[in-house]
Amino acid sequence: MLLKIDALLDYAFPAPADVLLQVEAAAMPDQRLEAQSLVIESDHPIRAVAGEEGIGQRTWARAERRLVARYAATVRIERTPVQLEALPPTPVAALPAGAIPYLLPSRYCEADRFDHFVRTRFPGLAGGALATALAAWVEANVAYDGSVVNGGGALATFAERRGVCRDHAHLLVALARAGEIPARCVSAYAPGVDPPDFHAVAELWLDGAWRLVDATGMGNADDLARVAVGRDATDIAFMTVFGSARMMAQHVSVARIG
């Protein structure tokens, strides 16, 4: 699968501010960058730093009055689809060190609040079978509503039963952690997202590897290009402003070209 990605960020700033961007697709074994360009209009130097878990990179920029960033890339996805329901569970005591933090509650993924729900609603399920059931439950029971962002995290989404992609990802991650499956949030580019935008999905540790799952049902694991990973939206935001900003224009386009 070959994806063509174009993104534009245009923001106005009432006062100078530092800005942390995470918009570049990550170079990884299952996604190869064939071309990539990030152009930031700024009078100040920019600086790249490694992303969470060493995946992708963040870029520091200094904004005065206006910041315009243009990103373009061609990414080849080389990821074989996997039948999640067939993957066996991994006992928590046997997990690798890097997966253990993703079992724990975080700011927007209050996994400890879902233990009873997961145990009683999905009795007897574990591993890939539980992951498949949880993803299906979120997709069926949480409406995609672009007008709503539940800032309270997974618990708020569970109560509201609607939200945007990050809300779906937060809820699936929290439910998976409650079911003893390490789970993390992933920012990604995906074709077919409606409306087109930066996308958020989940990644679950199953049978010795991280497996991408889109609880909105809009993206498929074999055509997602990861940008960043982390505990929740705090770690994967496409732009973090240390100050205030006003959006002038924002555009994301992702197309399959081969």
Results as ranks from 00 to 15, higher is better:
153 G>E: 05
134 L>E: 06
161 R>D: 04
163 G>V: 05
152 G>T: 11
172 L>V: 09
146 G>F: 02
189 Y>R: 10
165 C>A: 14
145 D>K: 13
158 F>T: 13
145 D>M: 08
169 A>W: 01
160 E>K: 14
183 A>F: 04
156 A>E: 13
130 L>T: 07
170 H>F: 02
138 V>I: 07
164 V>I: 08
135 A>R: 12
160 E>Q: 15
142 V>D: 03
178 A>E: 03
161 R>W: 01
181 I>K: 07
132 T>D: 06
156 A>I: 01
176 A>E: 08
179 G>K: 07
170 H>G: 11
182 P>C: 11
173 V>P: 11
186 V>H: 01
152 G>F: 01
189 Y>E: 13
136 A>R: 09
184 R>K: 13
137 W>V: 11
173 V>D: 02
159 A>E: 13
167 D>Y: 00
145 D>R: 11
160 E>S: 15
166 R>P: 09
138 V>R: 03
153 G>I: 01
131 A>S: 09
171 L>Q: 03
142 V>T: 09
155 L>H: 14
155 L>M: 14
165 C>M: 03
180 E>K: 15
159 A>S: 13
169 A>L: 05
174 A>Q: 10
164 V>A: 15
140 A>Y: 00
169 A>Y: 04
157 T>H: 09
142 V>I: 10
140 A>M: 06
155 L>G: 12
177 R>A: 11
188 A>N: 03
135 A>V: 09
184 R>S: 06
137 W>S: 15
149 V>N: 14
190 A>Q: 04
191 P>R: 01
152 G>N: 02
163 G>C: 02
175 L>H: 10
147 S>P: 04
131 A>Y: 03
172 L>M: 07
182 P>G: 13
157 T>W: 05
179 G>D: 02
168 H>E: 11
141 N>F: 00
163 G>W: 00
155 L>Q: 15
185 C>A: 14
164 V>G: 07
170 H>I: 07
150 N>R: 12
128 G>I: 01
152 G>E: 06
162 R>Y: 03
145 D>G: 11
191 P>L: 04
157 T>A: 08
147 S>K: 12
165 C>H: 04
135 A>Q: 13
172 L>G: 12
167 D>V: 02
131 A>L: 02
180 E>P: 07
136 A>Q: 09
179 G>I: 04
